[in-house]
Amino acid sequence: MITERKPKNIFTQGPIAATFIADSIQKHATKTNIGGHSIFLGQVRADDINGNKVAAIEYTAYEEMALEKMHQIREDIFAKYPLVCMHVHHSLGKIAAGEVCLFVFTSSAHRKAAIDACTEIVERLKAELPIWGKEVFEDESYQWKENK
């Protein structure tokens, strides 16, 4: 099935609330061709660097470019896996340690496509989207986050 998909906004100001994630799952109850969901949640980790603890990550992005790139990733993923749907949400702004900053949600008739697609989206998103994170420490000093 080939359908024309428009670029979607993936960015949310502030953290992604657990209630938003729950609502998103609930909305899929009407899509009865789905047999498996896969969800990845990224959470801000309070890394300890030389006794200085990360209190929050402040995310910024080259939004227009990121949305174009994400659209391309979305097209690739739909071409590669038999997904019923996929949703991606990434936070911008200051996200405190313990809060969710990334929500990737894929659904398919059978589990494997959903799981594999979800993993591939997370990997590609981290490698290809122009997004940056400033790790702000408890004493308000900062360093720029590096993806491992």
Partner: peptide, 8 residues
Amino acid sequence: LLPPFAGG
């Protein structure tokens, strides 16, 4: 100019 990406 885009320094190394750090999303997620």
